[in-house]
């Protein structure tokens, strides 16, 4: 079977990969590129653990074909930290103990990044609806939402 050659950008770096048409972007990231931060929890777009940004838009990478990445800019959890500094969202997830097992955490952080890029001052309700596609079975979402709201405040420069 012939594979497609895809030229793309992943976490700010030019990247190329070969993939079969039926391979999802999630398959490609994990099995071809070797970035295993995005997780497969359902492969049907229902859990959000595979969340990535494509040209800044939040998507489930399990619902995107690898070949569709051609010419796009992909951001994964591995690209959220700024150099050796954690992103404020990552820092607040740690401070608020907003993770237990941590399996859904990459997806939640990527989704939160997309939220705060679009809406720097969300209400709690807006944050809850935005993140409704990210299942977390451990935390009951309480500390997750607190971390998101606190990260938003920090990013707005209101607190540190």
């Amino acid at each position: 079977m012939s594979k497609s050659h895809v030229t793309t950008t992943i976490n700010g770096e030019a990247a190329e990969f070969l993939c079969e048409t039926q391979q999802t972007l999630l398959d490609v990231l994990r099995d071809v590129v070797g970035l295993t931060g995005a997780k497969e929890g359902c492969a049907s777009g229902d859990c959000g653990a595979c969340s990535v940004l494509i040209d800044g838009t939040l998507v489930c990478s399990c619902l995107v074909l690898g070949v569709e990445a051609e010419g796009k800019a992909i951001t994964t959890i591995e690209g959220i930290a700024q150099g050796d500094h954690l992103h404020p969202i990552q820092q607040k997830f740690l401070e608020h103990a907003a993770l237990q097992c941590g399996f859904c955490t990459p997806g939640l952080i990527v989704a939160t990044k997309a939220l705060l890029d679009e809406n720097p001052n969300p209400t709690e309700t807006e944050a809850r609806y935005w993140l409704a596609g990210n299942l977390c079975r451990c935390t009951g979402y309480d500390k997750v939402i607190r971390a998101v709201m606190d990260a938003a405040a920090v990013m707005r420069g209101e607190t540190v």
Partner: peptide, 9 residues
């Protein structure tokens, strides 16, 4: 329809 992620597509 679906989640924020699905809305992206």
């Amino acid at each position: 329809i679906g989640s924020t992620q699905v809305q992206g597509r």
